[in-house]
């Protein structure tokens, strides 16, 4: 027993060192948000600012129009995450548990699609939103942000659902649950670990997405998101680095809170779920 605890201490020590190096750039960004422009370049890798300048935060807050854009970002992110969660969980369920006509074809198309480096989807997506009459609205933005193949989420869901023992489904059938009820009442709640993954990753992507929100909100500044607002700090000739750092620090907070608060759902996998 004693030997194990020594081994654990070593693991923790090694991990702590690696973790510090790993998180250093992030810490540096936090520290940079208190620095002056000149100090930003002048002090190299130094983590402690000479003095704490809070005006970077004030400038970032005002320039990025945080007050208004925060609300928009939250609306967009929550809606997008909800849509993506619903669509990938539904599809993942049937892909994982059933063999149906056309499954292989559609999976093949999904997989093949993500190989193309599309860096200019903006043009067709914008044209499409225009045809739908949604090119300057939050709904259009939410739809466009929810779009895509989401192959990784589909696969995560499908392999998770596939690993759920058949007995559970049989029990549900005996209880008189139909196809949809079995999914909604029994299966969906089991998939918490995957939901957490989808919520975490999709939130980050939507939260930071820039180009699409920019073009959709071009003529409608009231519905802009944070990432668009923060971009105002990065100009053609003048770049407000400390402002960017400060803005990034503020914008990251909700994401980190989300990540930390979702942690507990990572620990219990199927085992815990099946038992209960």
């Amino acid at each position: 027993m004693k030997k194990i605890s020594v081994g654990k201490i070593v693991i923790y020590l090694v991990l702590a060192v690696i973790a510090f190096i790993w998180v250093y750039p992030f810490l540096w960004m936090v520290s940079a948000s208190f620095k002056t422009q000149s100090e930003f370049f002048g002090s190299g890798l130094n983590l402690i600012p000479q003095a704490f300048h809070f005006d970077n935060f004030i400038r970032a807050w005002n320039n990025a129009n945080f007050g208004v854009y925060f609300k928009n970002t939250i609306i967009v992110t929550i809606s997008v995450v909800a849509i993506v969660l619903m669509s990938t969980s539904l599809a993942g369920y049937v892909i994982g548990r059933y063999a149906f006509i056309g499954k292989k074809v559609i999976l093949g198309i999904f997989m093949a699609s993500i190989t193309i480096p599309l860096v200019f989807t903006v043009i067709p997506v914008y044209e499409l939103l225009k045809e739908l009459g949604l090119e300057q609205s939050l709904i259009g933005l939410i739809l466009a942000e929810s779009g895509g193949g989401h192959v990784i989420f589909l696969m995560l869901f499908s392999s998770f659902y596939a690993s759920i023992p058949n007995e559970m489904e049989e029990a549900a059938t005996i209880d008189g649950c139909g196809f949809f009820q079995t999914y909604a009442k029994i299966m969906f709640p089991l998939a918490k670990p995957i939901m957490v993954t989808v919520v975490t990753m999709q939130s980050i992507w939507t939260w930071n997405s820039f180009l699409l929100p920019l073009i959709v909100t071009l003529n409608n500044p009231e519905i802009r998101t944070l990432a668009v607002g923060l971009y105002a700090l990065r100009g053609e000739n003048v770049v407000d680095w400390t402002g960017i750092a400060a803005g990034a620090c503020i914008a990251i907070v909700p994401i980190v809170i989300l990540f930390v608060s979702l942690q507990k759902y990572f620990v219990d996998g199927i085992a815990g779920a099946v038992k209960s």
């Binding site: 849509i83 669509s87 990938t88 539904l90 699609s113 499409l128 989401h150």
Partner: peptide, 12 residues
């Protein structure tokens, strides 16, 4: 839903 989101914003 998944196919629709795919067709509109990736397929197209």
């Amino acid at each position: 839903p998944a196919v629709l989101l795919y067709v509109l914003f990736l397929g197209y």
